[in-house]
């Protein structure tokens, strides 16, 4: 069984903050990391591999600048078998469509794939679109917000997914794509042996010529959505501290909330 895990390198969001005096964005350091949800995607794949070590092969794939290789090395150090970096100047500026399109081409090039696992969303863009778009382009069934993966038969999964109001249990035939939540399992640490292997591993780098893609179909040129303006959100500046004894505080808050029409009060 061949599992592909899609990962993304993201800046650590806690380092992106608004300067309260100038109301502009400030960055502290440029640390980057594997998108947290992708760590759960990798863990979900590793747990399937744990059940049948010799017959499950995990390939991690990412699209990004050359330094995105770091997240692949990290995944290999945790037990992934292979890695591919999609990196090309032409890929820069891709929106979710162009990203999915490029990933789909690369996954087709990998050959037979039984299961693709992605994180629920990336924490920089928060779109949660690449998983479903990728599955659609590869004509695979998919399930999003998956919290639990079980096997009903060797080629049929039973997955539990989170909905806005509860859960749903679906029967999903392979090949398929899943996007997962943290509930699939706590990511394991790097292993010594895997880390040694990862250090020696030569990550293949695929560009547009390797994928036989035209410059016009990828990156910014292949994208539909154009960012026209970026700005700081309006922050609530009218913070009110409610003073007084505890019973006065409770009474004042109750009145304030009631006046603002909070339902149920």
């Amino acid at each position: 069984m061949h599992i592909v895990v899609c990962v993304k390198q993201v800046p650590e969001t806690q380092n992106v903050k608004i300067d309260p005096t100038t109301n502009t964005l400030v960055r502290q350091g440029v640390a980057s990391m594997m998108n947290p949800f992708d760590r759960f995607a990798l863990e979900a794949a590793l747990r399937i591999k744990d059940m049948d070590r010799d017959n499950v092969n995990i390939t991690v794939i990412t699209m990004g600048p050359p330094q995105a290789k770091e997240v692949l090395i990290d995944a290999l150090s945790r037990g992934a078998d292979d890695a591919v970096l999609l990196s090309d100047q032409a890929f820069a500026g891709a929106d979710t469509w162009a990203t999915s399109y490029t990933l789909a081409s690369a996954i087709r090039k990998l050959g037979s794939v039984d299961l693709i696992i992605c994180g629920k969303q990336a924490i920089d863009g928060d779109t949660a679109q690449v998983g479903p778009e990728l599955a659609t382009l590869l004509d695979l069934p998919y399930a999003t917000y998956v919290s639990r993966i079980e096997f009903l038969e060797p080629r049929v999964l039973k997955i539990t997914r989170q909905t806005d109001e509860g859960t749903a249990v679906w029967k999903v035939p392979l090949p398929a794509l899943l996007t997962v939540l943290k509930d699939v399992g706590i990511p394991r640490v790097r292993s010594y042996r895997a880390t040694l292997r990862a250090r020696r591993y030569e990550v293949p780098i695929w560009g547009i010529s390797d994928l036989r893609l035209s410059k016009e179909s990828v990156g910014l040129k292949g994208s539909f959505t154009q960012v026209i303006k970026v700005f700081s959100p309006q922050r609530a500046k009218d913070r009110t501290f409610i003073e007084g004894s505890v019973s006065e505080q409770a009474a004042r808050l109750y009145e304030l909330l009631k006046k603002q029409g909070v339902p149920g009060l």
């Binding site: 800046p11 992106v16 964005l25 920089d124 959505t225 303006k229 970026v230 700005f231 959100p233």
Partner: peptide, 9 residues
């Protein structure tokens, strides 16, 4: 970026 910036698209 987790709500730290707004983008018009």
């Amino acid at each position: 970026f987790g709500g730290n910036i707004m983008a018009s698209i």
